[in-house]
Amino acid sequence: MSGIALSRLAQERKAWRKDHPFGFVAVPTKNPDGTMNLMNWECAIPGKKGTPWEGGLFKLRMLFKDDYPSSPPKCKFEPPLFHPNVYPSGTVCLSILEEDKDWRPAITIKQILLGIQELLNEPNIQDPAQAEAYTIYCQNRVEYEKRVRAQAKKFAPS
């Protein structure tokens, strides 16, 4: 494992614990031996107030490669969400998460999670990743928002 990646992720964890947006979660997972795995984080993004996503808490896994922060983490909703920019596998399609697009090593975990929260309610229809959600979003916004509200209710924190 890269010392650069681990040191950056340790800084990220410290900064997150000191200050993070209300309702968001970002925690490194534990290895079988109980030690912390900084390369694999369990996160959760709350649906934004005043949107059909409100009330939901959407679980996301963030996986970092050894060359982080040169390369972005892979962000994957578990379980996958109904959304035009979420692949059926759950992987998020967002330009700041793509090395050859808008990724920059200075982007923080907090910025990534806030960017994904923004994307939930403002899909990028130029870059669809899920045919069904994309089609319904474009053709029947009322039905799309109904499905999103049902999903938010399903993923409401207990």
Rank of each mutant, 00 (worst) to 15 (best):
P123T: 01
T135A: 10
P73Q: 03
E132S: 06
K65N: 15
F77V: 03
L113A: 11
I45V: 15
F82H: 07
A106T: 13
Q139L: 10
Y68C: 05
V92E: 01
L63V: 14
R147G: 03
C93G: 03
Y144S: 00
N31D: 04
K76E: 14
F64V: 11
L120Q: 03
V142P: 14
Y144D: 10
Q139H: 09
C93Y: 04
K154Q: 12
Y87D: 03
R141W: 05
V148D: 00
S7I: 06
R147S: 14
M1T: 00
K49E: 14
G3R: 05
C43R: 01
N85S: 12
L119G: 02
Q126F: 08
K76T: 13
S89P: 08
R141G: 06
L119P: 03
P52D: 09
K65Q: 14
N85D: 02
L120N: 02
A152V: 04
Y68N: 01
H83L: 04
K59I: 09
Y68H: 08
N124L: 00
A150K: 13
I107F: 11
D66V: 05
Y137N: 01
R149Y: 07
I109K: 00
P73S: 05
T35A: 06
Q111R: 15
P80S: 06
M62T: 08
L114F: 10
Q151L: 06
G34V: 05
K154R: 13
P73L: 03
A131P: 11
T108A: 15
V25M: 10
S70P: 05
V86E: 01
N121Y: 08
N121T: 09
H20P: 00
N37R: 13
L120P: 03
V148L: 05
E98V: 05
I109N: 03
Y144F: 04
T35Y: 02
E118Y: 09
P32T: 12
P128S: 12
I96S: 14
T29I: 09
G90E: 01
K74P: 03
D33N: 07
R149Q: 13
V148G: 02
Q151S: 04
I107T: 10
D33E: 06
R149G: 04
K65R: 15
I107N: 14
R147L: 13
D19V: 07
C93W: 02
F77L: 05
H83Q: 04
Y134R: 02
N140D: 14
P88S: 14
K101R: 13
E132V: 07
A10V: 11
L113I: 12
W53G: 00
N140S: 06
W103C: 01
P157H: 07
D127A: 03
A15V: 06
K146L: 08
M62R: 00
Q117R: 09
C93R: 03
R104K: 10
A106I: 07
N140I: 01
P128L: 01
A10T: 10
D67L: 08
P32L: 15
V142H: 12
C75P: 14
F22L: 04
F155S: 09
A156V: 07
N40S: 13
M62V: 11
G55Q: 11
R147N: 04
V27H: 12
I116R: 03
C75T: 02
Y87N: 03
P28S: 05
N31S: 13
W103F: 11
K74S: 15
P69R: 03
Q126L: 10
K76R: 14
L57M: 07
S71T: 07
S158A: 13
Q126A: 10
V142F: 10
D67V: 08
I4G: 06
E12Q: 09
P79L: 10
A106Y: 02
K74H: 15
P123L: 02
W16F: 08
K18V: 13
E143Y: 09
N40Y: 09
S158L: 11
A106V: 11
E143V: 07
Y68R: 08
D66G: 10
L63P: 00
Q130L: 09
W103H: 06
W16I: 03
E122V: 13
L57S: 05
E122R: 10
F77P: 03
K48E: 07
P28L: 07
G34I: 06
W16R: 02
N31Y: 12
L38P: 09
F64L: 11
L38V: 09
I107C: 15
E122C: 12
E145K: 05
W16D: 02
Q126C: 14
A26V: 03
W53C: 03
M62I: 08
E118V: 12
T108L: 15
Q126H: 09
Y87C: 03
R141S: 06
E42G: 10
Q126R: 13
Q126T: 14
P105S: 11
E118G: 10
C75W: 03
S89L: 07
L119R: 02
I45H: 00
N37D: 14
D67W: 06
K48T: 09
E122G: 07
V148F: 00
A131L: 11
K76N: 15
I107L: 13
L38I: 09
E122I: 07
F82N: 01
L38R: 01
D127G: 06
A152T: 06
F82K: 01
N121A: 06
S7C: 09
L113Q: 05
D33H: 02
C75N: 04
S2L: 02
K18R: 14
N140T: 02
F58L: 06
C138S: 12
P84S: 00
L113C: 13
A44T: 08
C93S: 00
R141I: 09
Q139K: 10
I107V: 14
N124H: 07
F155L: 08
I136F: 11
K146E: 12
I96V: 14
T135S: 10
L113P: 01
Y68K: 00
S7N: 15
K18Y: 04
F77T: 07
Y134F: 07
C138Y: 01
A131R: 04
E145F: 08
S2T: 10
R104W: 03
E78V: 15
P157L: 06
P157A: 13
E118L: 10
I96L: 12
N31R: 07
K153E: 13
E132G: 12
F82R: 00
V25L: 08
C75Q: 02
F77I: 05
E118N: 10
F155Y: 11
E145Q: 09
K101E: 13
D67E: 13
N121G: 05
E122L: 09
R141K: 10
G34M: 07
L97S: 07
S158P: 13
P105E: 12
E122Q: 12
D67N: 09
L114T: 12
F24S: 00
